[in-house]
């Protein structure tokens, strides 16, 4: 096994391109755990720690937000002054694991693993985020919704690495909420709901919702959002939207809960996420 510590993205890309079995080492929280369990043994590790360009959170002039791939969960959790719905990403980061994992884990490392039980994927889909990639053929951006392809499978191509996650400007008057239900604190979600909502005069003017741990990738249903738009998010609206979302779910049975139970959680958690997001607007 080789170990590399490049200082530029280009160097990292050429190392990855040269060896199909090489893996990026970001925070290590997932990859090293898998190596310890003998589940993976890459031929080379490309540590991204020394690439300064992969760090940092920055707002752009248009109101968007760019989060470097090596930004830790803690940095995202502690990011202050995020605009409107963007605060959802901080709330989500705070829900990940516990302090040591938040100090180690990075947003790029987390989403690059493509685990639908992780916290970021649903939040990024709800925020309509894009994932910036760099490979031998240059840079490209993939909408979060398309980045997650299947269970533990992403749009990353051989030789590519994640350089950043970008969020479009927060919808006007929009706020977000992340509702996570887990067996114990710090566990992977049994079901999670990320919601971005803008209310106007008691009615839902904008809504975008994604579910975690309910299928091989984050679950989103535009019909469900359409059902909620214009409503006051009353119980029957939530119930109707949840029914649509459930049709899009394909949850597994595992030690965190049966697929059937996950389906039972969709409606109450959806309601809580939507109302928590809406309430943040109300509090202003």
């Amino acid at each position: 096994m080789e170990f590399h510590g490049p200082s530029t993205v280009d160097e990292a890309v050429s190392l990855l391109a040269a060896d199909e079995d090489a893996r990026c080492l970001a925070g290590g929280a997932t990859l090293v755990a898998m190596m310890n369990a003998d589940l993976v043994m890459p031929s080379a590790l490309v540590s991204l720690r020394h690439i300064a360009a992969l760090g940092g959170i920055a707002a752009d002039a248009g109101g968007g937000l760019r989060i470097g791939a090596m930004t830790t969960h803690r940095e995202v959790a502690d990011a202050a002054g995020l605009d409107g719905a963007h605060a959802l990403i901080s709330e989500t980061a705070r829900a990940i694991g516990h302090p040591a994992i938040r100090n180690m884990g990075t947003i790029g490392g987390s989403i690059g693993h493509g685990d639908p039980q992780a916290d970021y994927p649903a939040a990024l889909v709800a925020l309509d985020a894009s994932v910036e990639l760099r490979g031998p053929d240059g840079a490209r951006a993939v909408p979060a919704q398309d980045f997650f392809v299947d269970y533990l499978e992403t749009a990353l191509q051989p030789g590519e690495l994640i350089t950043a996650v970008t969020l479009p400007p927060s919808p006007a008057g929009g706020f977000g909420a992340y509702e996570k239900f887990a067996r114990v604190e710090g566990d992977y979600a049994t079901v999670s709901v990320a919601a971005a909502v803008a209310m106007e005069a008691g009615r839902c003017r904008y809504v975008r919702v994604a579910l975690g741990s309910c299928g091989p990738i984050p679950v989103r249903a535009e019909d469900a959002e359409a059902r909620l738009a214009g409503t006051a998010l009353a119980d029957e609206d939530v119930a109707a939207a949840a029914a649509v979302l459930r049709d899009a779910c394909d949850p597994v049975d595992d030690v965190r809960g049966s697929g059937e139970y996950r389906m039972m959680l969709v409606e109450p958690l959806l309601g809580r996420a939507l109302r928590a997001a809406a309430a943040k607007g109300g509090a202003r």
Binding site: G28, V32, A33, P99, A100, I101
Partner: peptide, 19 residues
């Protein structure tokens, strides 16, 4: 296995020595 690395608590078992 918790240790502090550059002042922050982290996992000794998930940190590669080389890193």
């Amino acid at each position: 296995c918790s240790v502090m690395i550059d002042g922050a608590v982290m996992r000794g078992c998930l940190t590669l020595a080389a890193d």
